[in-house]
């Protein structure tokens, strides 16, 4: 394996959690809901993923637990913002604070325990192709799943009729409601899907990226995923590009720290966060791009009146 292959492999591992969380949040925001709680759902996915794998000895059971944990958190958010029409920004923050707190409490017993790593699934035949094989087809289930999700979400949003309805809700929930589309039900399902994806992202962190549990191990990745949705202007394939770009930034600062570049490690560690700000500024300064694609009803409350 060459150096380049090795770096590319690490880029994929750093990008996958960002991609998983961002693709879920993309669907949520397309439905007109802003869930700022990605970080909280993700960190719950991480701790429950780890826990599930420990209890059963099977990392796939961990993934299932992580998805359920993410969906459970999302359900709280959905109930508060959709049924009780509470402020979405504040509720998202509450979800993040609650997730960080709960995960810290639940994970206390797991600190320092060796984790169970998600095995790589070689695809027979293709994974032996030089270069492409080991990099792209010698990955674990969640990496494949991240790409399958991108394809599925693209198809769902832009080909399927249900996806069209979801986008209609996201742009104008009053009109969609008038047409008889059950706005709140669609949004509940979108939020749950987002929770499941964040759970997967968390599971990837604690079962594949670094198979262990560390408090706050998401380290702001949930927030970066939110920024990626804006960066990708609410389009799945642009989100993929963004996720891999950020994965590369994340990995390159780690490599620079390991090489001992003379730059203080704290500055390198803050690079992904600064890069997020820079990218957000670049994207938002292009008003036309951001105005066309932003779901028009994003974050606005909706109460069906009878």
């Amino acid at each position: 394996m060459t150096m380049f292959e090795a770096i590319l492999l690490t880029v994929i591992t750093a990008s996958t959690p960002l991609l998983l969380a961002a693709i879920g949040e993309l669907v949520v925001e397309r439905s007109g809901v802003l869930n700022l709680g990605v970080e909280g759902m993700m960190v719950m996915g991480a701790v429950m993923g780890f826990a599930g794998a420990q209890w059963t000895g099977n990392p796939y059971a961990g993934i299932v637990c992580a998805v359920l944990a993410g969906m459970f958190m999302a359900l709280i958010f959905a109930f508060v913002t959709q049924t009780l029409v509470a402020n979405q920004v504040a509720s998202g923050l509450a979800l993040t604070l609650l997730g960080l707190g709960l995960s810290g409490m639940l994970g206390e017993a797991f600190v320092g325990q060796p984790g169970i790593k998600l095995p790589a699934l070689d695809i027979p035949g293709i994974s032996d192709i030089p270069f492409i094989g080991p990099v792209f087809f010698g990955q674990d289930l969640l990496v494949y799943l991240s790409f399958a999700l991108v394809v599925a979400v693209t198809w769902f949003l832009f080909v399927s009729r249900t996806g069209l309805k979801l986008r209609a809700i996201g742009d104008n929930h009053v009109s969609a409601h008038a047409l008889g589309i059950p706005v709140v039900r669609y949004r509940y399902l979108a939020i749950l899907f987002g929770g499941a994806c964040s759970g997967l992202a968390g599971a990837y962190l604690s079962l594949a990226y670094t198979p262990q549990w560390v408090e706050n191990m998401t380290a702001g990745r949930g927030w970066i995923a939110l920024a990626l949705v804006v960066f990708g202007s609410w389009r799945p394939w642009r989100v993929v590009v963004g996720a891999y770009l950020f994965g590369a930034v994340w990995i390159s600062q780690l490599h620079l720290q390991a090489l001992g570049s003379g730059i203080p490690s704290q500055f390198l560690s803050s690079l992904p966060y600064i890069a997020t700000i820079v990218v957000l500024v670049l994207i938002s300064s292009n008003r036309r791009l951001s105005l066309i694609n932003t779901p028009a009803a994003l974050g606005k409350p909706f109460v069906p009146e009878r």
Partner: peptide, 14 residues
């Protein structure tokens, strides 16, 4: 503590 704080904010908003 942080579980309490997170729950409290949710209940306040609700």
């Amino acid at each position: 503590v942080r579980v309490f704080q997170g729950m409290l904010l949710f209940f306040v908003l609700a």
